[in-house]
């Protein structure tokens, strides 16, 4: 599917990841994120990062899109990388006036950076090109309650609509001479804007629900055949399980 999400997605050309069922993609993402959260050995994290790079290559991203997405995360991590070494007690490494960076702090910062990058790259590689319908179906088939799955699906679908609506209202305010200042009128106007957005969202939600009922919706989305796992899922799943087993052994059994 080209660009199903209501938010800008990372475009992947026809890739091996696209051949996997939604269930496999969500499951692999969850397993990697949970594992990386509890793993601490540098060797394991390094190996996991290499593995995730393979997933990114397999996803065949347009690098410009990927770079754009990663910029937000890396900017935040850069701040973390600069500040964390100075805030963790341990063996002094570098003194800048009254502030001292420690070995433990540097190690902690690097670990966080690697972990976050693994999680973000995994999510982008495995889920970046999935549309909300497939994602919600996959999550539901993995045990997510149906109501929550619908909530996820519609949140993703309508987040950009919500953004566009707020932009329209802001433009309408600006067109009538509104300039935000630090005064009561500004805050009252923003309060009205927030209230109006909420009301319009509720109204829109009600009308969309009615439109769905008119087309036979009874609370459950129609089942999709696209979720069934195929041979490629089996091959990928086996390779992934072997790699995870090896990492688990290195992390916890050695």
């Amino acid at each position: 599917m080209s660009a199903g999400l209501g938010i800008p997605v990372v475009h992947s050309r026809h890739s091996p990841i696209e051949r996997l069922s939604g269930r496999t993609r969500v499951l692999v993402t969850l397993v990697i994120i949970v594992f990386v959260t509890v793993a601490y050995r540098p060797l394991v994290l390094g190996a996991a990062l290499c593995g995730v790079f393979l997933l990114v290559l397999a996803a065949r991203f347009h690098w410009a899109d990927l770079r754009g997405r990663l910029m937000h995360v890396e900017g935040f991590l850069l701040v973390l990388l600069l500040l964390l070494p100075f805030s963790v007690p341990g063996q002094p490494l570098l003194a800048l006036g009254p502030f001292t960076a420690t070995e433990e702090g540097v190690l902690r910062a690097l670990t966080v950076v690697i972990k976050v990058n693994i999680c973000v790259l995994t999510a982008l590689a495995m889920l970046g090109s999935m549309d909300p319908v497939r994602f919600a179906e996959a999550a539901e088939s993995l045990g997510l309650p149906p109501k929550f799955a619908r909530l996820v699906q519609f949140t993703i679908r309508y987040v950009s609509v919500f953004g566009a609506e707020s932009t329209r209202l802001m433009e309408s305010m600006r067109a009538r001479g509104f300039r935000p200042r630090s005064n009561l009128h500004t805050w009252r106007t923003y309060g009205t804007l927030a209230g109006m957005l909420l009301l319009r969202s509720l109204e829109r939600a009600r009308r969309v629900e009615e439109a769905m009922r008119c087309r036979g919706f009874t609370g459950r989305m129609p089942a999709s055949a696209a979720q069934s796992a195929g041979g490629f899922d089996l091959v990928f799943g086996s390779a992934f399980a072997c790699a995870m087993l090896a990492l688990l052994v290195i992390e916890f059994a050695t």
Binding site: M1, S2, G4, D131, P132, V133, F154, R157, A211
Partner: peptide
């Protein structure tokens, strides 16, 4: 029933 506002009717991604 065709709704007055098509934005109310169309909710799927594609």
């Amino acid at each position: 029933y065709l709704f007055q506002d098509p934005d109310d009717q169309l909710f799927c991604p594609t």
